[in-house]
């Protein structure tokens, strides 16, 4: 428990500082009110709107832990959203639509996983293929337009409420918690970390690296499918051109802000998810503060850089060093004074 808190400290501090900063520009940021059974307020918006990136970040954390990367998740989201919208408008119920969408996500993951683990293509290149082709596939399904639907059950996934909180929030929290449990209550987490750090040595020790890698990319596909369902449900339509566009980058950023190394190995899903919350807080904060759109990207970039620099191990060591020196000096001065 103590270890977990220590691991998450930088992210939590960054988030808290950010919230404080936003509150300066928009004092009501933390205010939450109850409006016919649903909580409303900027914080609730953050919790809801971070759903796609948080979901992706869960899967991306695992992929990155294996020393991989998945650039195709945005396109996969578009495919899965399109599949679900198509199924629902063709008259199938929500369960079937969800199953089809998740199936599509798993299939995308299987494809990526096989390219990486069996064919041996570099993850960056392997997933680039689906990144470019995927949106085309989604457009084929939607025939290039926004495929709208009216199914209230599906729409509920995006804009419904359960116990006061938006559905997307519940979805990402569940996925993050369950995945964390799956990783840490079984040996999966350890084995994934092992192949990420040293695949050769792990394989030699009997770790089934090929199957694990494929499974990890499929888990990523699963998360992307859920994210695709959420954004599609949110606007009651599958927008093949824009659904999930560039979200792969936000997901990777979330993982990096979460202090996970792009070189694989040790990972923390909780930290990545906090990373997603940080990104969304920045976006919503900038908007609420009312800065002109032109500055959004710049402000976001600056904040992200600051957060990453503060987290970097180099900075940590330096900081440690200077603190030691200071303590030293104080000690010595104290001694002399005595």
């Amino acid at each position: 428990m103590h270890g977990t808190l220590k691991r998450l400290a930088p992210q939590l501090i960054a988030l808290a500082t950010l919230i404080a900063l936003v509150s300066v520009f928009y004092p009501g940021f933390l205010s939450v009110s109850l409006n016919d059974g649903r909580l409303v307020g900027p914080v609730v918006d953050v919790l809801k709107r971070s759903a796609p990136v948080a979901l992706l970040a869960v899967g991306m954390t695992l992929v990155i832990a294996t020393r991989g990367i998945d650039l195709s998740v945005g396109a996969t989201m578009a495919i899965c959203g399109a599949v679900a919208a198509y199924a629902v408008s063709a008259g199938y119920g929500l369960p079937v639509a969800m199953l089809l969408a998740i199936g599509a996500g798993l299939l995308a993951g299987l494809w990526n996983g096989c390219l990486v683990a069996i064919v041996g293509v570099q993850p960056f290149v392997a997933t680039l293929i689906l990144m470019t082709a995927g949106r085309g596939i989604a457009q084929l399904i939607t025939e290039g337009r926004i495929l709208t639907f009216t199914d209230p059950a599906f729409a509920f996934l995006g804009s419904g409420n359960l116990l006061g909180l938006p559905m997307p929030t519940w979805i990402w929290i569940c996925v993050a918690v369950l995945t964390t449990l799956l990783m840490r209550r079984t040996a999966l987490g350890l084995l994934i970390e092992a192949i990420g750090i040293n695949r050769r040595a792990s394989a030699l020790a009997g770790v089934n690296a090929v199957v694990l890698l494929i499974a990890v990319y499929m888990a990523m596909g699963f998360c992307a499918a859920l994210a695709g369902l959420v954004v599609t449900a949110d606007i009651r339509g599958a927008d093949a051109n824009n659904a999930g566009l560039w979200l792969e980058l936000d997901a990777i950023l979330a993982v990096v802000i979460g202090g996970n190394s792009l070189l694989g190995g040790r990972f923390s899903i909780a930290a990545s998810v906090i990373g997603a919350l940080i990104i969304q807080t920045i976006s919503i904060g900038i908007r609420l503060a009312g800065f002109p759109s032109e500055y959004n990207l710049l402000i976001k970039a600056v904040l992200v850089v600051v957060i990453l620099v503060l987290q970097s191990p180099r900075f940590g060591t330096e900081w440690h060093y200077w603190r030691q020196q200071l303590q030293f000096k104080r000690l010595r001065e104290g001694k002399i004074a005595k």
């Binding site: 307020g41 900027p42 759109s293």
Partner: peptide, 26 residues
């Protein structure tokens, strides 16, 4: 009173509108 980009997309249109509603007294 408020002007932000919604990137021509439906989902960002919705998201940004939520912020507008938030900051304009619900």
């Amino acid at each position: 009173v408020q002007s932000q980009t919604g990137d021509f997309t439906r989902s960002l249109g919705k998201e940004v509108m939520e912020s507008f509603l938030q900051s304009e007294n619900g």
